[in-house]
């Protein structure tokens, strides 16, 4: 019977003795497995692949056609102008995307007031972050379109006249041609970044809005009694209290800028002639697009992007670690 055992002296098993230290690992196992299979192992596979030249094919007997080339892929990167264009665009993205942080802050300050219907306005400002990036890309693609977009329509209204052409159909005749932002090597990247900023600003705004809820009212009042107002109030009293929100906003913006891919894929496919490529899109184009199939070279690009991201991620993790230590 079950009760007899209760009186017997129990010998604690190893599992029972170490329950507390095992339990967390036990619960972590599923996440660790997936993280290893989908993140950690692919990172090493990709590093390894970058030392090969491979078109992704296997021979009929199942052996790989990959050929070991050592660091040749990296040497090629060094002399590849398209790689440098992509890298330059990545830097552009990184800097211009940072605008999302201050702009988001000001919109948040603007919206942080009690007016009837404020929730509605807030949700309207947040809207671009909710809709898919693909939709944002399409909308901006049409916006810039020189034939039927907003940009084209405004230009046509100013500089074009409607005439009947030789075959009796209506057509527009213009002085010069309307600006074609997405087909211009000079401006296309800026056009895409502007599209990317729209949802990113909304994201930063929502981070600051939640941050503003936690701003200590007594400190604001104390500052007001001491005569602080306007910019000084913002800079010395409000912004320091928003530091956690700022940190997160900067982190998501940096990562968002470095992995910008969907906007480019939708709006220009890296064109015209590769001038809007960034590393992530160039990697996709080289490795798995129709005209690519160069897996080794694509992996080398991925490795460079990974190294750049690693710098930022290590810094962020370090900061978070320091903050946690300081908080205790």
């Amino acid at each position: 019977m079950a009760t007899t055992d209760a009186n017997a002296p129990t010998k604690a098993s190893w599992i029972q003795k170490n329950k507390l230290s095992i339990a967390p690992w036990f619960f972590l196992i599923p996440a660790l497995c997936f993280f290893a299979v989908y993140v950690v192992i692919p990172i090493f596979e990709s590093l390894y692949l970058s030392l090969f030249e491979w078109n992704g094919l296997y021979r009929a007997d199942g052996t790989s056609t990959a050929e070991f080339v050592g660091f040749e892929n990296y040497q090629k990167l060094w002399t590849d102008p398209k790689f440098w264009v992509s890298l330059k665009n990545n830097v552009l993205w990184l800097f211009l995307f940072m605008l999302a942080v201050p702009v988001g802050l000001f919109i948040a300050l603007f919206l942080n007031q009690t007016v009837p219907g404020m929730r509605f306005y807030k949700s309207m400002f947040f809207f671009p972050f909710v809709i898919s990036q693909v939709v944002v890309g399409l909308i901006f693609g049409w916006f810039y379109n020189p034939d039927f977009g907003v940009v084209g329509s405004i230009y046509k209204a100013l500089y074009c006249e409607e005439v009947t052409n030789l075959l009796g159909n209506l057509t527009t005749r213009c002085d010069g041609s309307p600006p074609d932002i997405l087909s211009s090597a000079e401006y296309a990247t800026y056009g895409i970044i502007a599209a990317g900023l729209w949802p990113q600003i909304a994201y930063c705004m929502i981070l600051y809005l939640t941050g503003l809820n936690n701003v200590a009212v007594d400190q604001i009042e104390a500052a007001r009694l001491d005569g602080a107002k306007g910019w000084k109030m913002l800079w010395y009293v409000v912004v320091p209290q928003l530091k956690p929100a700022t940190f997160i906003a900067v982190v998501v913006t940096v990562i968002g800028a470095l992995r910008s891919f969907d906007m480019i894929a939708i709006m220009t496919q890296g064109g015209p002639f590769g001038s809007t490529n960034v590393l992530s899109y160039y990697m996709f184009e080289t490795a798995i697009s129709e005209y690519g199939e160069r897996y080794g070279y694509g992996s080398a690009i991925a490795t460079v992007l990974f190294a750049i991201m690693l710098v930022f991620i290590s810094y962020f993790l370090y900061r978070m670690y320091q903050d946690e230590k300081g908080g205790r």
Binding site: A185, G271, P272, F273, G274, Y291, G292, R294
Partner: peptide, 14 residues
Amino acid sequence: PAAMAKAGMEGFQK
């Protein structure tokens, strides 16, 4: 070949 074609066609567009 694919890599040449891609570069070539971008060049033509440019």
